[in-house]
Computed example of a mutant assay.
Amino acid sequence: MSSEVPLMTLKSLQKEFKDLQKDSVEGCVVWLTDDSNFLEWQVGLFGPPETIFQGAYFKAILTFPLDYPFSPPCIKFISDIWHPNVYPNGTVCISILHPPTADEVSGELPSERWNPTRTVRTVLISIASMLNSPNINSPANVDAAVMYRKWNTNNDPAYVDRIKDLIEKNKSLAESDGVTIPLTLAEYTTHTKPVEDTPDMGDLNLDSDYDYNYSDSDCYYSDEEEYEDD
């Protein structure tokens, strides 16, 4: 099922994308899957230096709903990742990405969930923070949470070994995307663009009636599915 993207949604995403090209989030790079489709962004997430994720590169797809920013986007990793707050299918599960509805089961406060004042920048900051500081109280991947807890409390090496394997595995993916993995704090805080050229936002007329289309994604899931997995 496809629908035309509302102009307000399109303008909002174009502006946010342009802002992130000028002033990126530490440890993240974004680019468009297709220059004609602002509803799907690709995200490169780097592991913070001086942590067990140093040298890591994880790739994800950020998908926006038609009524963004009133509903949250969805972010789903398409590269292998092992993390307590990422479902086995790659979908990220953190409070900021949950719809702004009351939910007694999760125990989340409404202020912790999505609201229209949040932006892609706040989402990326939350994802970058999540990487090395997972929430294991309500995990999306129970096995990863158990492994993390054992490492964090008893220094069990299994979690670190799993991360190291993924770091080595994903190096070739970074090369194919044309990105350089930061290994120092200075590099981590510097914007690193993919090889592909990003669209010239200055040439875009934000008042034009673009004919972008949106297709439903399997990235989204219901609260029932979410808590069943938790």
Score class of each variant (00 low, 15 high):
residue 137 N to I: 02
residue 82 W to Y: 15
residue 76 K to Q: 13
residue 146 V to H: 12
residue 86 V to Y: 10
residue 150 K to S: 11
residue 77 F to W: 06
residue 107 G to R: 06
residue 109 L to E: 09
residue 162 R to F: 10
residue 109 L to G: 03
residue 143 D to M: 06
residue 114 W to P: 04
residue 143 D to H: 08
residue 98 H to M: 12
residue 102 A to S: 11
residue 77 F to I: 07
residue 156 D to V: 01
residue 128 A to C: 07
residue 122 T to Q: 13
residue 138 S to I: 10
residue 86 V to F: 08
residue 96 I to M: 04
residue 101 T to W: 00
residue 139 P to A: 03
residue 136 I to P: 03
residue 159 Y to V: 00
residue 93 C to K: 01
residue 113 R to M: 11
residue 113 R to E: 02
residue 119 T to C: 07
residue 105 V to T: 14
residue 152 N to C: 00
residue 131 L to T: 01
residue 113 R to H: 10
residue 106 S to N: 13
residue 106 S to V: 07
residue 97 L to K: 13
residue 97 L to D: 12
residue 97 L to E: 11
residue 79 S to H: 00
residue 103 D to C: 13
residue 103 D to M: 06
residue 133 S to H: 15
residue 153 T to E: 14
residue 95 S to N: 13
residue 123 V to I: 15
residue 154 N to P: 00
residue 119 T to N: 03
residue 99 P to Y: 00
residue 140 A to M: 07
residue 152 N to W: 01
residue 79 S to L: 00
residue 111 S to H: 15
residue 132 N to W: 09
residue 81 I to A: 01
residue 86 V to D: 08
residue 118 R to F: 14
residue 89 N to H: 14
residue 126 S to C: 03
residue 82 W to I: 06
residue 83 H to P: 11
residue 85 N to C: 09
residue 89 N to I: 07
residue 133 S to M: 12
residue 97 L to G: 08
residue 137 N to M: 07
residue 116 P to R: 13
residue 80 D to H: 12
residue 98 H to Q: 15
residue 113 R to P: 05
residue 120 V to K: 01
residue 119 T to G: 01
residue 148 Y to E: 01
residue 161 D to T: 13
residue 115 N to E: 09
residue 108 E to H: 13
residue 159 Y to T: 00
residue 103 D to V: 04
residue 88 P to M: 11
residue 103 D to L: 08
residue 152 N to E: 09
residue 101 T to Q: 09
residue 121 R to S: 02
residue 143 D to A: 12
